[in-house]
Design a protein around this nucleic acid. Structure first.
Length: 666
RNA sequence: GCGCCCGUAGCUCAGCUGGAUAGAGCGGCAGCCUCCGAAGCUGUAGGUCAGAAGUUCGAAUCUUCUCGGGCGCACCA
């Protein structure tokens, strides 16, 4: 609602500036003043114009003042300070429109493809993977159609590198260290399943073991690395026992990853796999296209002689002339001199597919049924009918910022191929990695060097088997919540207590990983994550639960309270100190669509986390100041009830976009 | 060596395309449960926005440099 008025104000002022001064300004700043006493919207536009018009800012502000004051929804305009235009809104009118749930429309056309999680299917997910998945899942929720917004058509996929070195490492561990055959592996996986042992946990240890085995005896290191490479090639080629073992393990671990993610409410639409990219010859199609357009060329001299390479965008921008300076030594190798393609090459092919530019598609087969939809996986020969995801208009890749460079190369390859619009709509939704605090690392039994202790965080390492496993973390979060729920609500059924604890534990975890902006390195600490006070998920959930409790006790529904607002004479009840403290809840609630739009534009779910906290804080403040159930003035009581209703309504919405559910009690 | 990111209160972090007296949580101190649930609320102390110069009516925000920290720059994936 705030956004709606803001846009009207911008339009009016922009029109007026054109008419009055012949100045064309767009996207004018309309901001929230630092204090409510200054009104609800502030425009510093007069400062901007001062030098252009050679007039004092205050004089310009005075000229614009009268015009703004006439606008519907505006109660008054003041000129403050050196030339701010401070707008006071018609509070009663705004409250009525909000009670009717009027708000700006968020959404648009085109298909948006969000890719996240993408964990190597060779070991258990850890806390760093959770940051990725939670970030991507929240962003997809922000985009998708729901009860609040039309949103965008959105697809969620999780890329599975089932033929990479990390999977090869596990295969080496199983076939060499454990001396298992294909039949042994089949039996082993069945036994683990029967015993309820998590395959991904077992692989976690195997991966650490094999990583050490490679290095353990220096004189055998070369031989062992060769085993690793041969294994990798066998997996890539397919059609042999080694590949079958890889398939069994990768699929088993993938199923575990999906279970882990589902505990957090995270679901996928499609799982494209590296094996199909290989077997369906995606790369060959991309290669033909790249050679045809001259993006890929054979290097004939220098250190990259015999390789097919692609120039980097930076070299091109710098205008380095090939003929004059000889070979571009900085060029990115796409095809090695032995004829094999690099990771970036395969990724270019994959991204041409995403935009429907490759002329090929995956086969699709069903993999998992969620309550509301099916998750598909790639196949060489799929089923019919099936959906297709190869028609994105915009893509978002949730990937660690350590891959900024390769991501830029893929994007620039698209541009070089002539797909500039696609490159522009390619968002690398990057984020800094998650480390552990020294305290938590020590709790996990890791022995720290003095150097480690001096650092702000300790980096996790899959090869060392060092890190916080996702399921362990989720278990501990829920257990901590459960202890609180048991203490507070002994009267509730066991089942309900479990549900509440799950909502709180998951809410706390998701909020903890979302409250930091993407480029902030998170030093994960168990004590911090398990704290449920202050700026946390449970704090926001608690505010929503309290608001709901009021309706239960008042015997009035939130909907009825909001509907009753229309017939109230509100103006006097929203003025003065008391009235303003009520109004501020509405004002904060009114910014929901604005904050959502900003968070989408910045691809920054943390902005919604911050907003949820501010709204919850505002509500808690209101809750203590105004005792609703004992209010004797009926009209005023109804306004207070509606205030609780609107705070709860928007809190439930914003938490929903963050994947955080509001429990029945806390 | 080249490129990217970061440096804001004791700690952890916000600070939107430059805008009003730089904010929050935690921790500290002082208060608030015969009153809708205290996972809560109120008050209070605490900052040379790493440093320097510049652009601007106005800089935590933009530019340059210095210092300090992190991460990338493979015929790995």
């Amino acid at each position: 609602m705030y956004r709606t008025l803001q846009m009207q104000l911008q339009e009016r002022i922009e029109g007026s500036l054109q008419e009055r001064y012949g100045v064309a300004l767009t996207n004018l700043a309309v901001e929230l003043p630092p204090k409510i006493a200054f009104g609800e919207m502030a425009l510093p536009v007069a400062f901007e114009l001062a030098k252009r018009l050679k007039k004092a800012p205050r004089a310009i502000a005075m000229e614009l003042q009268a015009e703004l004051a006439q606008m519907p929804g505006v109660a008054g305009v003041d000129v403050a300070g050196a030339g701010y235009l401070n707008v006071r809104l018609d509070r009663a009118a705004m409250v009525k429109r909000m009670a009717a749930d009027e708000h700006a429309v968020v959404g648009g056309g085109g298909f948006r493809l969000v890719e996240h999680t993408s964990i190597n299917p060779n070991k258990a997910a850890h806390v760093g993977h959770l940051r990725n998945a939670i970030l991507g899942d929240s962003f997809a929720r922000m985009l998708k159609k729901d009860e609040y917004k039309p949103g965008w058509e959105t697809g969620v996929q999780n890329y599975i590198d089932n033929t990479g070195v990390q999977v090869a490492d596990i295969v080496v561990a199983v076939t060499v260290l454990r001396d298992m055959s294909l039949a042994d592996v089949q039996r082993w996986i069945a036994e683990l399943r029967a015993a309820g042992t998590r395959l991904d946990y077992v692989c976690w240890d195997l991966y650490a073991a094999v990583s050490q085995w490679y290095e353990a005896e220096p004189e055998k290191a070369a031989e062992r690395k060769k085993i690793r490479l041969d294994t990798l090639h066998a997996i890539e080629a397919g059609g042999n026992d080694t590949a079958a073992i890889a398939e069994l393990i990768a699929t088993g671990v993938l199923r575990r990853h999906l279970e882990t993610m589902e505990r957090l409410g995270i679901e996928y639409d499609f799982l494209p796999r590296e094996s199909e990219i290989l077997h369906l010859h995606f790369w060959e199609a991309a290669r033909a296209l790249m050679v045809e357009k001259g993006v890929l060329y054979l290097e004939t001299e220098g250190k990259n002689r015999g390789c097919w390479v692609m120039r980097r965008a930076i070299s091109q921008a710098a205008g380095v002339e090939l003929a004059e300076t000889g070979p571009d030594e900085d060029a990115k190798i796409i095809i090695r001199s032995n004829g094999t393609v690099t990771y970036v090459g395969k990724d270019i092919a994959y991204h041409l597919w995403k935009y429907g530019l490759l002329g090929k598609d995956f086969g699709y087969t069903t993999f998992r049924e969620y309550a509301t939809h099916t998750c598909w996986i790639s196949a060489v020969e799929g089923e019919d009918p099936h959906p297709s995801y190869a028609h994105a208009d915009a893509i978002y890749n949730v990937i660690d910022s350590r891959q900024d460079d390769p991501q830029t190369q893929v994007k620039e390859a698209l541009r070089a191929l002539g797909y500039a619009a696609e490159a522009d709509r390619y968002t690398h939704l990057n984020y800094a990695f998650v480390g552990l605090t020294a305290r938590t690392a020590e709790d996990l039994g890791y022995v720290l060097s003095d150097e480690d202790k001096a650092k702000n965080f300790i980096e996790v390492s899959g090869r060392k088997g060092f890190g916080v496993k996702a399921d362990d973390l989720i278990d501990r979060m829920i257990a901590a919540a459960r202890a609180e729920v048991d203490a507070r609500h002994p009267e509730l059924e066991d089942r309900e207590r479990a549900e509440i604890a799950e909502a709180i534990g998951v809410g706390a975890l998701r909020f903890f990983l979302l409250r930091f902006t993407r480029n902030t390195v998170i030093a994960f600490d168990y004590q911090d994550a398990l704290a449920f006070d202050g700026e946390t998920g449970p704090y926001a959930q608690y505010a929503a639960v309290r608001a709901a409790n009021i309706f239960r006790k008042a015997g009035v529904s939130a909907e009825a309270a909001l509907a009753a607002v229309e017939g109230l004479d509100l103006a006097a009840m929203l003025e003065g100190d008391e009235g303003t403290s009520v109004w501020e809840v509405w004002l904060t609630a009114s910014r929901l669509s604005l904050v959502l739009e900003q968070a989408i534009a910045a691809a920054e779910p943390a902005m919604l986390g911050r907003y949820a906290f501010v709204l919850a804080q505002q509500f808690n403040n209101f809750y203590h100041r105004h005792h609703i159930l004992t209010e004797t003035d009926e009209a005023r009581k109804m306004l207070l009830l509606a205030t609780a209703a609107v705070a709860r309504r928007e809190l439930v919405r914003v938490l929903g976009w963050l994947g955080i559910a509001v429990p029945s009690a806390m």
